[in-house]
């Protein structure tokens, strides 16, 4: 009971701290913008720990953060193998193939108006569908190993990337196109010097959306069959064995991988589209 009380106190303390920060003179500084979510996160973890211990919540329902941390530290080799299988082999290769082919397709779609008229509504339609559902089919075709996961990822990222890139390639204004016209520029000159750079914010938007989709695809596809490794495999078997600390450890890996992947793409975006108002602010 004392621990539960402690949790309540911790919550009040964390909230008080953030209120002070938010109404303080430094409220808009970088430091506060960084500290406040950190304090909030740590408070949540602290409360979680205290509640689980205070109320003796069984491991099969919710393991305490410390238990998860211990399991994480103790299973690094397994987690690493799973990470390589699911993220590097499955998600990353599918991401690269999917985004690249969607990019090429977008150029074709942009070039031929008929393709744009026909393919774009289909692409928009498919982009909203539950594509992870193709996983059982692709697992059947490409086997249990990472190739089928990469295939699922390709299908998942293709259409969002296509739709975004096509929108981006149409982003150059009429005036900018007219300017290229007055220079009697060829199609590829105007493509390389105008439309491609102008499309970059949209291309990166597609790339960023696709990072998360790639991880979702690679992990969920493993629920439909996989060799005896991989994050999705580990999650589903550990759930079956009720070792929830392992499940949480894998989720931590997934969270870190997702954030890092997204962050990396966002960093490249910042370097490439430094000129865009959204990056200058």
């Amino acid at each position: 009971m004392i621990l539960v009380l402690g949790a309540v106190l911790l919550w009040l303390f964390g909230w008080w701290l953030n209120s002070r920060l938010a109404s303080g003179p430094q409220a808009n500084s970088r430091l506060v913008r960084f500290l406040a979510p950190l304090i909030f996160g740590l408070t949540i973890i602290g409360i979680w720990e205290l509640f689980v211990r205070g109320l003796n919540v069984p491991l099969v329902i919710l393991p305490a953060p410390s238990v998860i941390a211990v399991r994480f530290a103790g299973s690094l080799p397994i987690l690493w193998v799973d990470f390589v299988q699911t993220i590097i082999k499955g998600a990353l290769s599918g991401y690269i193939i999917g985004c690249f082919s969607a990019f090429l397709m977008a150029i074709a779609v942009d070039r031929w108006d008929f393709l744009r008229l026909g393919l774009l509504p289909v692409g928009n339609f498919v982009a909203a569908l539950p594509i992870v559902g193709t996983a059982p089919i692709l697992v059947m075709w490409f086997g249990f190993d990472w190739h089928s996961k990469a295939a699922v990822v390709v299908v998942m990222v293709f259409f969002p990337m296509l739709v975004n890139t096509v929108a981006g390639l149409r982003e150059a204004t009429v005036m900018q196109r007219d300017l290229m016209e007055t220079y009697a520029a060829t199609y590829w000159q105007s493509f390389l010097k105008l439309r491609l750079p102008a499309a970059m914010p949209f291309v990166f938007n597609g790339l960023k959306i696709s990072t998360t989709l790639a991880l979702i695809g690679a992990i969920v596809a493993e629920f439909f069959g996989s060799p005896t490794l991989g994050m999705g495999f580990r999650i589903s078997t550990s759930v079956g064995q009720l070792s929830l600390d392992m499940v949480w450890a894998e989720i931590v890996v997934a969270a870190l991988a997702g954030t890092a992947f997204y962050g990396l793409v966002a960093m490249i975006e910042k370097a490439v589209t430094f000129w865009h108002p959204s990056q200058r602010g």
Binding site: M175, Q176, L179, L194, M200, T273, H276
Partner: peptide, 9 residues
């Protein structure tokens, strides 16, 4: 043109 239309990049 009416606007400068310089490429921001």
């Amino acid at each position: 043109f009416q606007a400068a239309g310089l490429y921001p990049w």
